[in-house]
């Protein structure tokens, strides 16, 4: 009984506790041991709240298992879950992830009444005519004229940007922001980009060069990996 390998290893760090859960044992066994350990080491009432990081190794948790684990930790006052980290993800999630971080190159004209929707970034080689619409979950790059509507970061990514060789859009939309063309007749602009300006809390159109300052993560391929 005594020489049984420990399933849960607890390490104290400066940030709090790190829990290593053995990746080979059954989940129920681990939960049982965790339960015992938590009860044993329950912090006293006056102790400050300790944040806990859980490392799962090569174990994948189903949603209800995740919930179970969180419940046990939260049961004892004084613990706060900082993160639950696993080395593995599901194939499905991985594919979605890949999909979301890919640039899709499409060569066509988006005409009036047509909607082009993509996951991830869109590179459109062709025009978006008035009445046409392009939608992407990431950034939109248009090598052509943008006369219609472009909606970047449709799932809520406010850092998304819209770039076009020639910009005279009816509307620009980024996440939940919308801006429209002015009511007076105006000329379009060449080689510019639209992005959300945090300070002004609206979409602005600026020279392409500002992107290298304001959207540094653009050139990093795996930027959405960090964003989760």
């Amino acid at each position: 009984m005594q020489d049984k390998k420990q399933l849960i290893t607890i390490k104290g760090t400066r940030e709090g506790l790190t829990l290593f859960i053995d990746e080979l044992c059954s989940f129920n066994e681990a939960i049982k041991e965790l339960h015992d350990k938590i009860i044993k080491n329950k912090p006293k009432k006056d102790d400050p709240i300790v944040s806990v990081r859980i490392k799962l190794g090569n174990r994948y948790l189903e949603d209800d298992q995740d919930k179970q684990l969180t419940e046990i930790i939260n049961q004892a006052n004084g613990f706060k879950i900082d993160s639950i980290e696993s080395e593995v993800i599901r194939k499905e999630d991985a594919l979605k992830w890949k999909e979301d971080s890919k640039i899709k190159a499409i060569n066509r004209i988006v005409r009036s009444g047509q909607v082009l929707e993509v996951k991830g970034d869109l590179l459109l080689i062709g025009d978006v005519n008035p009445g046409g619409k392009v939608v992407s979950t990431g950034n939109i790059y248009i090598m052509g004229n943008l006369y219609g509507i472009a909606h970047a970061g449709v799932d809520g990514d406010r850092n998304a940007c819209i770039v076009a060789s020639y910009m005279k859009p009816t509307q620009l939309r980024i996440a939940d922001y919308i801006s429209r063309a002015p009511d007076y007749e105006s000329d379009g602009v060449y080689m510019e980009c639209g992005l959300v300006d945090e300070g002004q809390d609206k979409i602005i159109i600026d020279r392409l060069q500002v992107l290298s300052n304001k959207r540094k993560e653009l050139s990093r391929f795996e930027r959405r990996v960090q964003n989760g």
Binding site: R111, S112, Q114, P130, G131, G132
Partner: peptide
Amino acid sequence: VRDADRIIGLIE
């Protein structure tokens, strides 16, 4: 012109 654009899209 707008309607023509729509029609061309449908014909394509």
